[in-house]
Amino acid sequence: MNTFLQLVLNGLGKGAVYALLALGFVVIFKATEVVNFAHGSLVLIGGYMVYATKDALGWPAAAALGIVSAALAALLIERLLIAHARNADVNSLALLTIGVDVIITEEIVRRLRADIPFIGDPYDAQPLQAAGLTVFRTQLVALIVGIVLITAFFLAFRFSSWGVAMRAQAENREAAALMGIRSSRVTATAWLLAGALAGVAVLFMATQDFSGAGLGRGTHAIALIAFPAAILGGLDSTVGAVVGGLIVGLTEALSAQYVSFEFSKSAVFLVMLLILVIRPSGLFGTRELSRV
């Protein structure tokens, strides 16, 4: 029972991180209908900036710089590339982000050389023991940070003028434009936000607690797991992203314990397949109507 509780807590912590990533995907998708395959490279940019500056600036400043860098990188991708490829359809734009992802990932991996640094200094590798439970501190902090950020996100999404504009745009782009909503600003903000969330997520991903692997190609691969999270929740549902993230985190933690560590990633994808076969648009996704 204790093991199980422990797993659930750790799984939820991981799930919170996946939820942050998945939320980024969904926000970008809602704003632009583009599936951002470059999300993993945003994670790497954030992580790399932390690694490169934390000795000089100290961890908190470095972490802030990392988050800002990931956010700016996302903004640059949108402003420089996506916004200028207006005649390409959304599927082509998704392919474009694959190209961007390749370039950024290779460059960061080159810069890291042989290093695979851990960047969760304040909390990493200091397990907490209480009431007979051992919980990874990283996952616990991630869970708390995740809850705070996700709550803040939903409040902003619901009440801020950006949130209203964003939802209007996702509903009907033309109508939103007619109502005076500046599409480009909403879109840019969406990318900026998604980048920032990726920058936060990486602070927990490249740790011994979370993956046992430092920043590198492995981190990029972990970011891919946010895909199933976003997809099984439904690509256009913010609630779906959070639920999807938690499902993925729990699936990974439980299958790693009860089946095998190697199987855990496959398990995540199998759960996604199962859900997609039953509901092709995900748990909370809008079902696509065939209209003629």
Partner: peptide, 9 residues
């Protein structure tokens, strides 16, 4: 990577 970006754009 650059070729993919250029082609789409």
């Amino acid at each position: 990577g650059v070729a993919v970006v250029l082609v789409v754009m």
